[in-house]
Computed example of a mutant assay.
Amino acid sequence: MGKRRKQNLPAKPSQVVNPVSKSPVIGTFSHIQGEINVSPLPKPSDFEGYERVLPGAASRLMEMAEREQRALIELRQQDAQLTKQMMEYDYKSFRAGQWMGLVVTIFSLAAAFVLAYRDNNIAAAGFGVTGLAVLVGVFLRNRFVPNQQEQKNP
C-alpha cells in the first residue's frame, strides 16, 4: 500500500520556475500513481470487481491460491526430506572413511612391526610412516578441508 505525498504546487503556471535557467515555466503537469500488491491474493475491493465482471471468478482465484499454497508446502517438505537424506549420507560416508582409515592404519602398523621383527628396517619404516600419516590425516582432515556450510557462507 503506497503512501501518498501531498505536494504544494503553485496556483499559477507563471510561478513555476526552472531551477537551472531560473526562467518561468508554462506547461502542464501530470500525476502518476502506482500500487504494488505483494500477496498471492488481490485486495478485497479487487475481488468484488472480478466477481462483478465474471461471476465465480473470486472463488476460482481462492482455489488457485490454495492450490499454489499446497504446492509450495509440498515443495518445502520435499526439500527438507532431501536435505535430511543428504546429511545422513554425508555422515555415513564420513564414518565409513574414518573406519577405512583406521583399518589401513592398523594393517600398516602391524606390517611395520612384523617387518621390523624380521630385520627389514627400511620396509618397516615405510609402512610405519604410512600408517602414522593415515592416522594423522584422518584426525586433521576437518581442520584443513572446509565443510560445505563454510563454502556457502564466506
Rank of each mutant, 00 (worst) to 15 (best):
154 P>E: 09
38 V>L: 14
3 K>W: 09
79 D>R: 03
86 M>Y: 09
4 R>D: 09
50 Y>D: 12
2 G>V: 04
141 R>Q: 12
36 I>A: 10
47 F>S: 05
151 Q>N: 10
88 E>Y: 00
102 L>T: 10
79 D>G: 07
12 K>A: 13
41 L>F: 06
5 R>D: 13
131 G>Q: 01
146 P>L: 00
142 N>R: 11
52 R>H: 11
72 L>V: 06
141 R>K: 15
151 Q>D: 03
4 R>P: 02
93 S>A: 03
45 S>Q: 11
135 L>H: 08
68 E>L: 10
101 G>I: 01
104 V>S: 05
147 N>C: 00
116 A>S: 15
101 G>W: 00
144 F>Y: 14
132 L>T: 13
27 G>K: 01
29 F>I: 13
153 N>Y: 00
34 G>Q: 04
12 K>G: 04
77 Q>R: 06
95 R>C: 05
73 I>S: 01
117 Y>T: 15
90 D>M: 13
75 L>H: 01
106 I>A: 15
17 V>Q: 09
53 V>A: 14
38 V>I: 06
71 A>D: 13
53 V>I: 08
72 L>Y: 03
55 P>I: 04
67 R>W: 04
16 V>W: 00
136 V>L: 15
74 E>P: 09
118 R>D: 15
90 D>H: 06
87 M>V: 08
140 L>F: 05
84 K>C: 09
62 M>Y: 12
139 F>T: 03
151 Q>F: 03
149 Q>Y: 05
125 A>R: 04
56 G>H: 04
1 M>S: 12
86 M>K: 12
57 A>E: 14
104 V>F: 06
66 E>N: 07
68 E>D: 13
1 M>G: 13
2 G>L: 02
24 P>L: 07
82 L>D: 06
93 S>M: 02
108 S>L: 07
150 E>W: 00
1 M>R: 04
81 Q>E: 15
50 Y>M: 15
35 E>N: 13
39 S>D: 11
88 E>A: 14
40 P>T: 10
25 V>C: 02
32 I>L: 09
2 G>R: 02
8 N>A: 09
39 S>C: 11
7 Q>Y: 06
96 A>M: 12
41 L>D: 12
85 Q>P: 14
85 Q>Y: 09
28 T>F: 01
115 L>R: 08
135 L>F: 14
61 L>G: 08
120 N>I: 12
43 K>A: 11
35 E>M: 08
150 E>V: 01
37 N>C: 12
78 Q>M: 13
80 A>R: 08
105 T>E: 13
53 V>C: 03
37 N>G: 02
39 S>K: 03
